[in-house]
Structures are given as structure tokens and as C-alpha cells.
Design a protein around this nucleic acid. Structure first.
Lengths: 230, 230
DNA sequence: TTATCTATTATGTATGCACATATTAAATGC
DNA sequence: GCATTTAATATGTGCATACATAATAGATAA
């Protein structure tokens, strides 16, 4: 059978754009024309083009046609790593080590992040994630007890709070913030580095249907980085 | 007409997963059944399901059926920001300020990144990206002159090297690395902060068809962060 | 029992067609 | 000239259908 699937056509069009045949901002032939040129149905071309539009390579408008993007929207998808997986992928044995675990009144900025009133009592958990005994990352987490009361009894020595929560509320929404932060005393000690060292940091707040579940700050050991391709 | 489009069905299925009707790991009804249930064609259900699979919510295998992912692959898409856009979005006026600009022998680790031999001569450019006169980020870039010889004459006071290169080679592939790094003397001075301050850092190497074009390190001012939703 | 083949089946993909919808360009009215 | 309506058109979407392909379960043979 013919090998003209939508992926082939998608690739062909991509190459024509990358080769400069159709310059940024230029309009490219309509679906009907391309279908004729490649000898396939418009449906197939349509699918290929939709994919390219998803990739941010082209811009499509009804009636107006399809154009190559002026400045391609460069976007990368990062898989939000699960710390245990990262550690195990490197061949080390994972173990969470709890540094702090108590239910206390949350600081105002934490309560605000979870859209709770000032002075709300939250479950506070600080965990060092160990790979073969070495600290890979330090997690500082606050959990809304109204949303996940069982957490106080969870076996957090065996399973990390993150994974425990994923099992409880697998499909939640979240905010993710990447930044760099300076090591405080606790992190400096854990990572055996100086106070003020630059640490790659992920802040994450999670909710489901307007109920805020948890917010956490994850600080990685010095030298850690997150890699992606575009 | 009926409002049963693929997006509606996609949303419906998503909700049934999020509600816990189909638990992680469980198999969900086949396309034919769902089509019957929703009163649409299998094509439409297929499209909805493919989208959900792209989102990492479900896993599909021929013959084996579709299952809810055990641990949902959390992934976020970050738009790789163009510094000028970031600055202008905040209402400030953008201006690049060149700190260094010369063609010299590249350090070995840079030559290696661009897959060139040791001692290759490269165009080296250090730029401070200013927003209303304040330094927003410092960029340290090396350009392969074999790939983009014209860069030596580019008006880099007006347009940043990044944007100039995007125009020359709009559709290239790249590696992106997010990390935290300590401010060296140059950055400390530019950002009016102390040496060793934690800076959010993006490393990026770009190529097109096996020709490596440029590699750069972009260090953002203290406090900068990258935000996303999942 | 174990290995190999075969039929079954769920998803994957291509196509032709019809109609929806957004946007532009042309026609019309003031 | 300027505003409004109308027609033309490229993409967006849904459906029925046919066939491809991979994985499994069951049948068959060693």
C-alpha cells in the first residue's frame, strides 16, 4: 500500500519549512493543493497540518490560510520528575528521610498559597530524599488536612508524601514554578555545602476542583539540572 | 446540530477518570462502547482518546485496550521565553548591551558542546539584557562562524543575537537545560548583588541538520522564576 | 508440557463526503 | 467616502467505511 500517512506528510512539510522554501510569515499552500500534490486526501493533510500547528511551527486561520510562524513559539515539555524515579534511574537506592513532621499553624504566605485563612493548621513535612544515603533533594511540604486527613497516618518512611498523595488524588491540577534559591542552614547541612549555595528549586501547588491540597518546595542538590529537547 | 464534538467527549472521559470512576491501572471501555454510549462515531471517540493519551492521562495499546495510567506522567510545557518579550511584557523598554564581542579560540568544553575540534575559533558574545536600564539577564553566547558567518556584522546593539539567529535559522533543534548557578564577578556586578548569589540559568545549544550553530548560557537576575501550569 | 500457529479483537490510520465556522473580499446602501 | 451586508473560501469537525497492525487467547502440533 501507499506509504503516504499523515506522519510522512507532516515530515515533508516540516522539511520544506526548515529548508526555507516557505519563509517565516509566508502563507503556505492550502490543504486541497497539498493533498493534490502529495496525492492523498485533504483529511490526511489536515491532520498533518494540525500536528504542525500544535508544535508551534505554523499558524492556521480559517479562510485566511496557513502561514509559517514569524517567530516560532519555542516550547519544551518537561516531565515533572518524581524524585524516587530520578534516584532509581541513576542506579541508587531510594529512601525518604523525614526531618520534620507535625501539624502546626501555617505561616501566612503558605496559608495564602493554599487559599486558606490566616492561622489555619496544616500538616508540615520536611523530607530529605536520599539516593544511596546521599541527599538528592530536600522537600518542604504543607498539606491541607481538610483535603487529605489520612496523611497524618501515612507510612511516610516507606513511600514519599508525593507518591502517597498521587495515589489519593491522582488527577489534580497544579502550579509549577522553577527558580534558583540560596541554601538555608538546613539545606546547606543536608547537601554538605555552604549556606547560600545556588540550588535548583521547584515550587508546586496542587489542587482539585477548588480544593487546595498541598504546596511544596523542592530544593535539589547543587549541580542538579533539568534537561529537555526542543 | 448535536454538540457532541471530540472536545466534549474528551472532557467527559477526563472527568470520569478524575472522579475515580476508572481507577489508575484500570482498563476503560473500548472505543466502540464509548461511541455507543455517547452516541457518536468511533472516529470521534478515537480522536478524544488520542488527545488524552497525548496528555499522558491514559495509555493505549492495540488489542490490549486503553488503561488509565498508574502514575500519570506529569508534564508541563514551558514556553522558552525570548528575553526581549519578557521585558517588554513587563512594560519596560528593552535594550541589549554588549559587554564583549570577539572571535577567539573557544574553551574546550564549549567546542565540545558544538561538536567542533579543540581550538576552533568561535564568535563570543556577552550581552546584558536591559529593561529600562536595569539588567534582566546576562547572556554568554558562542556562535559557530561556519554556520552563521554574517553574525560578525550583525547590528547587535539593536537586535539581540538570539533574535538575529532565529531569523537566519528559524527552525532548528536544540537542547535546553535548566539549572541554578552562582553569580560570578561579572553577573554580581551586573545584577548589583553578591558573588555567589543563586541565579536561575538556562543553557541552550542549537543545531540544524548536524550543524551546530550556537550555544549559550543565560543567567537571570536574582528572584527570577519560570511559571507553568499542569 | 511446551512451542508454534491462527483467529480474534482493539486500536491506528486513510479516505470521501457533508456541513460548520471564521474571515476576507466584494457588493451594496447611505 | 464610509458603514453594512453578502458571498466566497480555507480551515475545522463529524461520520461511515475500509483496511492495517499489534497483541492476545485459544487451537494445534511436537
Amino acid at each position: 500500500m501507499s506509504t503516504l500517512n499523515h506522519q510522512t506528510i507532516r515530515k515533508a512539510i516540516r522539511e520544506r519549512i526548515e529548508s526555507g522554501e516557505w519563509l517565516p510569515g509566508a502563507i503556505i499552500p492550502g490543504e486541497v493543493d497539498l493533498a493534490a500534490e502529495y496525492g492523498c486526501s485533504r483529511t490526511t493533510v489536515n491532520r498533518a497540518m494540525q500536528n504542525l500547528a500544535d508544535d508551534g511551527l505554523i499558524e492556521r486561520k480559517r479562510r485566511a490560510g496557513t502561514r509559517v510562524k514569524e517567530i516560532p513559539t519555542r516550547q519544551t515539555t518537561f516531565k515533572i520528575p518524581i524524585v524516587r524515579h530520578e534516584i532509581e534511574a541513576s542506579g541508587a537506592r531510594y529512601r525518604p528521610h523525614i526531618l520534620e513532621r507535625k501539624t502546626i499553624k501555617a505561616p501566612n504566605h503558605i496559608a495564602a498559597r493554599l487559599h486558606l485563612k490566616k492561622g489555619a493548621k496544616l500538616f508540615h513535612l520536611v523530607t530529605a530524599h536520599l539516593g544511596d544515603g546521599r541527599v538528592h533533594a530536600v522537600e518542604d511540604r504543607w498539606v491541607n488536612l481538610a483535603a487529605a486527613p489520612d496523611i497524618v497516618n501515612a507510612p511516610l518512611n516507606e513511600i514519599s508524601a508525593n507518591e502517597w498523595l498521587i495515589r489519593k488524588v491522582p488527577y489534580s491540577s497544579g502550579d509549577v514554578i522553577f527558580s534558583a534559591s540560596a541554601a538555608a542552614a538546613r539545606e546547606a547541612e543536608a547537601f554538605e555545602t555552604k549556606i547560600g549555595s545556588a540550588l535548583f528549586t521547584i515550587d508546586r501547588t496542587t489542587w482539585l476542583d477548588n480544593v487546595y491540597i498541598t504546596t511544596m518546595t523542592l530544593r535539589y542538590r547543587p549541580g542538579y539540572n533539568l534537561h529537555s529537547r526542543l
